[in-house]
Structure formats: C-alpha cells, structure tokens
Amino acid sequence: MKISCFLSAQFDPSASAADGVDDLMAQAAAAEAAGFHAVYLGHHFLARSAFVQPVPLAGYLARATARVRIGFAVLLAPLLNPVALAEDLAALDVLSRGRLTVGLGAGYRRRETTAFAVQWADRLRRLREYVPILRALWNGETIDIAGSWGEVPGASLALRPVQPGGPPLWIGAFAEPAIRRAARLDTAWLIGPKGNDEELGRLLGIYRGELVDNGFAVDRDYPMTREAFVGDSYAAAAASVRPHLRRQYTGYKSWDDAQSLDIDRYLAEDCLVGSADEIVDKLLRWETELGITEVSLRHQFVGAGQDEAMDQLARFGAEVIPRLATSAPTSVHR
C-alpha cells in the first residue's frame, strides 16, 4: 500500500500567505524524504481562508521536489474550461517530468458554481464530458468538441503530457450515483474522508460491479483519503486532534452539522487515529479486505501548527511507512 500526504494550502487571512507557502514546501520536502508516495492539493474558490490555488502551486511543488508524485484531491473541473484544463494539466505533467495525478470532482458549493455561471446540474454533465475530452486531447487526437462552456472544431494539443495517454484520472465521490459515474467513466474512485469499513465495502462492491457491467477492468488504483494522527496511544492521538475536529469537519459539511458531530464515532470510523501499531493494522485491513492501494493522509488538522505537521510527517515516515513496505496482503477482494 502507498501512503501519501494531503497538503492544506489554506491559511488564516490575517497571517502571511507567503510564509504559509514556505511551510508547505517544507512539508512537501519532508514527505518526500520520509518515503511518502505523493502529495495532494485541494481546490476551492471564494474560501473563507486564504486558499492558494492548486494549479500554480502544483507547478511550484514540481520544482521543489524530485521523486514524490503531485496531484489534486480534487480539482473542481466543471468550473474550468476543458481546453484550458487539458493544456494546464499537460504543462504540469511536463514540469513534473510525468509525476502528475489528477483527481476531479463536481464540487458541492453553490457559491462557486454561481460565480462561474455554471448551472448546478450542469456541473455533473460537464464532469462526464470532460473526462473523454481530456483523454482524447492528451492522446494526440483531433476532435470536434462543444458544450455549455464553448465550442472548438478540430481541437488538438501540440503540447503533450510526459505520461502516455496523460496523467491518471480519478473521480472524487461520496454518493452512490457519483460512484457509479466514476466507474462508467473508467476512472478510479477516490474515496472521500468518511465511511466505516462495512459501508465502504458495500460501495466498493457497487463500483466494481459497475466496472464489470461496462466491460472495464477491476484491477486498478483504489485510492482513499483520511484525516490522520499517530500518537503513543489511541487516547493520546485523539486528545491531540479533538480541539480541531469541529472546524475540520466544517470543511466537508456545514457548521450546524459540525456542532452535532459525534466525535467518538468520527474518530473511530472516519479518521486514521491511534498508535503506530493500530494505524498499521487498520491500513493492512483496508488493503486485504477492501483492496485499497493508496491512502492520502491529511496530517495537519485545521488549526494545527507547522511543528505538529512536521512531527506527524516524520513519525509516519519512521513508524508506519517502512512497516507497510514489508507487509504483503494475504487476500484482496477485487
């Protein structure tokens, strides 16, 4: 199993964003040195925090790193023009020497779609249409394309990605219809940061069944995202993150939902929190029972400082990642 890192590129508006980016670069370098597989970035517009946009930041990360893969988890593709998106991502793949992974999502904030004059329902249609457009352009095809975003007869790209066929495409999804959509598009399903093992097993069964029904292979990437914290014990780890949890959860739900959050359940089911032994056991269980191939961990909870984030990267690199490299799953349900 591969272990990756989600970088929180959003800062207090009253603080220095330039200093925040410096901290982020230090985290990326630490993740690369510690043996993490990839670093991922999120995407929002009109955020309450000072949110550094991921496409230019990914180019900066490509220059600051040498081995670690760079990706999006996720990029709000429907808010962007598909031709610009294809060219920007091809450029990033060139800048990173073929280290790019592209997670795409439909988005869940109406404020963002309204700002870009995208109808709420149209964001789903755009996501469905964009995947084959990106693949065709990256493969060197010349295609006639049109949609609510515009029209281009005879579209083609002179700039081609380093990776044959372009960067891997993942679709981030929570709901069953969106998971089925990811399968029908022949993309990996990027599992969001929630869901217990039983529910994930059920949804993975639906995803794999949809792949088979559409004639696609089930042997592929199975990436997952989780909030994570390693401590000397489960109690110590939980105590460290509890002060940040409601603010963290608000990033996925409303503030009202966060106030009713069952913190004990959230920590036990939706997060990866505990001692190194407990974390390794859970990761190996996800690998053997669910077939998960990569877990992207957000180590810096909202409100946590740089020192804590760097300590977590070092601890995962020393106490968790080496043990996964030497442990092989006994069975994988695919």
Score class of each variant (00 low, 15 high):
1 M>G: 08
7 L>F: 05
10 Q>P: 00
12 D>N: 14
14 S>A: 15
15 A>T: 15
20 G>S: 02
29 A>V: 11
30 A>F: 06
38 A>P: 06
40 Y>G: 14
40 Y>Q: 14
41 L>A: 00
42 G>C: 06
44 H>L: 03
45 F>Q: 13
46 L>A: 10
49 S>R: 14
50 A>N: 07
51 F>T: 06
57 L>S: 00
57 L>Q: 01
58 A>R: 07
61 L>C: 10
63 R>P: 04
67 R>P: 04
75 L>E: 11
75 L>K: 12
76 L>Y: 13
77 A>Q: 01
79 L>S: 09
80 L>R: 15
80 L>T: 09
80 L>M: 14
87 E>V: 05
89 L>D: 03
102 V>S: 01
103 G>M: 05
104 L>C: 12
105 G>D: 13
107 G>Y: 05
114 T>S: 15
114 T>Q: 15
116 F>I: 08
118 V>S: 01
118 V>N: 02
123 R>M: 04
125 R>V: 15
130 Y>Q: 13
132 P>M: 10
133 I>C: 08
136 A>L: 12
137 L>Y: 07
148 S>C: 14
158 A>K: 13
166 G>F: 07
166 G>M: 01
167 P>T: 13
168 P>M: 08
169 L>G: 14
172 G>H: 00
176 E>M: 11
177 P>A: 05
178 A>L: 12
179 I>K: 01
182 A>C: 11
183 A>N: 08
184 R>W: 05
188 A>N: 05
189 W>K: 02
189 W>Y: 05
190 L>G: 05
191 I>T: 08
192 G>T: 11
194 K>S: 15
195 G>M: 03
198 E>D: 06
199 E>V: 11
201 G>Q: 07
202 R>A: 10
205 G>H: 06
205 G>L: 12
207 Y>Q: 09
212 V>R: 15
219 D>C: 08
222 Y>A: 14
225 T>N: 06
231 G>S: 12
231 G>V: 14
232 D>R: 13
234 Y>E: 11
234 Y>G: 09
238 A>E: 15
248 Q>W: 09
248 Q>I: 06
250 T>H: 07
253 K>A: 15
253 K>R: 15
255 W>A: 15
256 D>P: 03
257 D>W: 13
262 D>Y: 00
265 R>F: 07
268 A>P: 04
269 E>A: 10
269 E>M: 02
272 L>A: 09
276 A>K: 01
278 E>N: 11
280 V>M: 12
282 K>N: 06
283 L>D: 08
283 L>A: 10
284 L>S: 10
284 L>C: 14
287 E>T: 12
289 E>M: 03
291 G>F: 15
296 S>R: 03
299 H>Q: 08
302 V>T: 08
303 G>P: 04
304 A>F: 02
306 Q>T: 15
311 D>T: 14
313 L>Y: 00
317 G>V: 07
319 E>C: 08
321 I>K: 00
323 R>E: 05
323 R>I: 05
324 L>K: 00
325 A>W: 03
326 T>K: 13
326 T>C: 07
329 P>Y: 02
333 H>K: 09
